[in-house]
C-alpha cells in the first residue's frame, strides 16, 4: 500500500479520543517505564504479602539487625521484624494516603481556582481564603485538628480507618493552595480567549463553559500539581508519623519506617534505604506517568 492510500485511510477511519490518547501515551518512553515501575510497586504491596508470608509485626529477638538473607531479603530491624514485610505493609498505607490526599487537594484546588477565575465576584474572597491557608502555620494547625478529632473519628471508624480519614483530610485541606492559584491564573487567561466568547455567543451555559472549554485546557497544570501532590502527601504523612500524630507506632508506613530506621543508619543502613527507595521510585514513576498523560491529553502534542 502506498503512503497516500494509507493517509487517506487514516483520514476516513474513525479515531476515538481515548484511542489516540493511549497511542500517544505508549509512544512516551518515560511514561511507559514509569508505568511499569509503578505497576511493580503496586503489585508488590498488594500481592507481595501473599508470596512473602511473614507477619510484619512478628518479633524475632534472635535475628535482630540481621543483614540480607533468604529468610529476610531486606534484613530485619532492631527487634527482629522482617523489613520486606514491613515495607510491603507500609506501602499499602502510604500509597493509599498519597492518592487519596492528592485527590482531595486537587478537587478543592481545581474547584476554588476555577470559581475564582471564572466568577469575578468570588475572585477576591476565594483568593484571600487561599492566602489565609498559605499563611497558616501548618504544623500547629495539624496538631490542633488531630487533637480535636482523633478520638471522635477513632470511635466512629475504628483506630486505623479513623486516623486514615483524618490524615487524608488534613493533608488534602492544607495542600490545595498552589493548585488553586495556578488554575485561577490559567482560567483568567483562558476566559478572555475568543473560543470562550464564541461559546457565550452560542448560548452555552456557564457550567458547560467550565467543563467543556476551561477544565480541559487547564488539565496540564492540574496534572503536574497532582503528581507533585502525591509525593508531598507521602512525605507529609511521614512527618506526621514522626511527630507521633500519624498512625499508631506499630502500624508501619514508609515514612514511619524511615524515621524509625534513621537512628540505626550506621548499623543497618538498609533500614532507611528500602523505604526511601520505595518513596523515591513511587514519586519518580508517578511524575513520569503524569508527564506522559499531560502530553497524551494535549492534541497539539499528540501525533507528533
Amino acid at each position: 500500500m502506498t503512503d497516500a492510500s494509507l493517509a487517506a485511510q487514516g483520514m476516513t477511519a474513525h479515531r476515538s479520543l481515548w484511542g489516540d490518547v493511549w497511542r500517544q501515551f505508549r509512544a512516551h518512553r518515560g511514561a511507559m517505564v514509569g508505568s511499569a515501575v509503578f505497576l511493580f510497586i503496586v503489585l508488590g504491596v498488594t500481592v507481595g504479602p501473599y508470596i512473602h508470608t511473614v507477619d510484619p509485626q512478628y518479633l524475632n529477638m534472635r535475628a535482630r539487625n540481621a543483614g540480607i538473607s533468604w529468610d529476610h531479603p531486606f534484613g530485619t530491624d532492631n527487634v527482629g521484624r522482617d523489613m520486606l514485610a514491613q515495607v510491603m505493609a507500609g506501602g499499602r498505607v502510604s500509597l493509599a494516603v498519597g492518592f487519596a490526599a492528592m485527590g482531595v487537594s486537587i478537587v478543592i484546588g481545581a474547584l476554588v481556582g476555577v470559581l475564582a477565575g471564572y466568577i469575578r465576584r468570588l475572585d477576591g474572597p476565594l483568593m484571600r481564603l487561599t492566602d489565609l491557608f498559605l499563611a497558616l502555620p501548618i504544623l500547629p494547625l495539624l496538631l490542633v485538628i488531630l487533637l480535636l478529632f482523633r478520638d471522635t473519628l477513632r470511635t466512629l471508624f475504628g483506630p486505623e480507618a479513623g486516623i486514615f480519614l483524618l490524615i487524608v483530610f488534613v493533608i488534602g485541606i492544607t495542600s490545595w493552595m498552589q493548585t488553586a492559584r495556578i488554575v485561577r491564573g490559567e482560567v483568567l487567561a483562558l476566559k478572555e480567549r475568543e473560543f470562550v466568547l464564541a461559546a457565550k455567543s452560542i448560548g452555552t451555559r456557564g457550567h458547560r463553559i467550565i467543563t467543556r472549554h476551561l477544565l480541559p485546557n487547564v488539565l496540564s497544570p492540574i496534572m503536574v500539581s497532582a503528581t507533585i501532590g502525591i509525593a508531598n502527601a507521602i512525605i507529609t504523612e511521614s512527618a506526621l508519623s514522626f511527630l507521633g500524630l500519624g498512625f499508631p507506632p506499630d502500624f508501619p508506613t514508609w515514612g514511619r519506617l524511615l524515621f524509625d530506621g534513621k537512628d540505626f543508619m550506621t548499623l543497618t543502613p538498609e533500614r532507611v534505604i528500602w523505604p526511601g527507595l520505595a518513596i523515591s521510585l513511587t514519586v519518580l514513576s508517578v511524575n513520569f506517568i503524569g508527564d506522559g498523560l499531560r502530553d497524551a491529553l494535549d492534541p497539539r502534542i499528540r501525533g507528533r
Binding site: 479520543l17 480567549r193 475568543e194 473560543f195 466568547l197 464564541a198 461559546a199 455567543s201 452560542i202 448560548g203 451555559r205 467543556r212 472549554h213 480541559p216 485546557n217 494535549d298 492534541p299 497539539r300
Partner: peptide, 25 residues
C-alpha cells in the same frame, strides 16, 4: 430569554487561532 434569541444571531471572530478550542475536534 436572551439564550433563546442566541440562535438567531451569531458571530464570526477575528482570530481563527483563538476562536476554536484546541482540545475539541
Amino acid at each position: 430569554a436572551l439564550r433563546r434569541m442566541r440562535p438567531r444571531m451569531q458571530m464570526i471572530f477575528q482570530d481563527p487561532h483563538a476562536s476554536l478550542n484546541p482540545r475539541m475536534t
